[in-house]
């Protein structure tokens, strides 16, 4: 379990995070939602070890995360950042292999190869392996990055939990792949004993897939909890400046969002 305890972070004069707290459990999908500029990416960077000068604590099974050495940490944590920019031509196969870099020195062993192959098949990108990454479409690039990050997050010792962080992973995908990805993420999280935490902007998908929703606004945690409890709170609508309704159909809840500009 990861416990985020009252973390605050300022960059320059700007206070980005203010007393953020949350508990993230193994085998759970934690989704951070919030308006633009709420500090979502900054929170992920703090959990992932990019931002380290916050006050408060982030504890992973009672150990401060930043006490874990980076080379160890990259074997128990995988973080897919936003907007990966690559300058030189590079084969898709070689991009995905970097996901296993923390696990070997010079040559990947057969387990690494199997993991990479499994990730490739999971995202159906076998036909892209020999292609130049720079010539792929936005959605294809994203699926290649999924295969890379899932190879890194792949857990060979199910007794130990691992951490998977994803910053806006589905923003370049069409609706079919968005659903498909979130379904795969959920299954992968449970199978590999992961603590998954991600930022997405699609509120109804966040509601559908989250084990826990974290609503962030102006650096504060406004709401945390089960999706149903979060969206029923009146702070949910006011944070996003929307009016939402829960609709129950065939025993399933849907989050509907009304166009509040027309009121």
């Amino acid at each position: 379990m990861i416990r985020i305890e009252n973390i605050s972070l300022s960059i320059g004069q700007r206070e980005i995070l203010k007393n953020v707290s949350a508990d993230l459990h193994a085998k759970s999908v934690n989704i951070i939602i919030g308006p633009n500029g709420a500090g979502k990416s900054c929170l992920l960077d703090s959990i992932g070890g990019i931002n380290r000068n916050y006050s408060g604590e982030i504890l992973w099974n009672n150990v401060p995360v930043n006490e874990i050495k980076q080379n160890k940490r990259s074997t128990i944590q995988a973080y897919l950042t936003q907007n990966i920019q690559i300058q030189f031509p590079i084969r898709v196969r070689d991009i995905i292999s970097t996901g296993r870099f923390p696990f070997y020195d010079y040559k990947p062993n057969s387990i690494d190869e199997e993991i990479i192959l499994e990730a490739v098949e999971m995202f159906e990108i076998n036909h892209l392996l020999e292609r130049n990454y720079l010539t792929l479409s936005g959605g294809e690039k994203q699926r290649v990055q999924f295969a890379r990050i899932f190879s890194q997050a792949y857990n060979t010792e199910a007794s130990e939990e691992k951490l998977l962080i994803l910053d806006e992973p589905i923003s370049h995908l069409d609706i079919h792949f968005q659903f498909e990805f979130l379904n795969k993420l959920k299954a992968f999280t449970i199978k590999h004993n992961l603590i998954s935490i991600l930022v997405i902007h699609e509120l109804s998908l966040a509601f559908e897939f989250a084990t826990q929703l974290i609503v962030l606004d102006e650096g504060r945690t406004i709401l945390t909890g089960k999706p149903k409890d979060v969206v029923r709170d009146k702070l949910f609508d006011s944070t996003f400046k929307i009016s939402s309704t829960l609709l129950e159909m065939e025993g399933h809840d849907f989050l509907l969002i009304k166009n509040s500009m027309n009121n």
Binding site: G48, G49, I50, Q70, N71, R73, S74, T75, Q77, A78, Y79, T81, I84, Q85, I86, Q87, F88, I90, D94, I95, T98, F101, P102, Y106, Q152
Partner: peptide, 20 residues
Amino acid sequence: AKSIDALQLGEKEAFLLGIR
């Protein structure tokens, strides 16, 4: 060589892959 390959993803990404 391996670290330079990782660096091609970006400095932040290379750091997250354990590259110093």
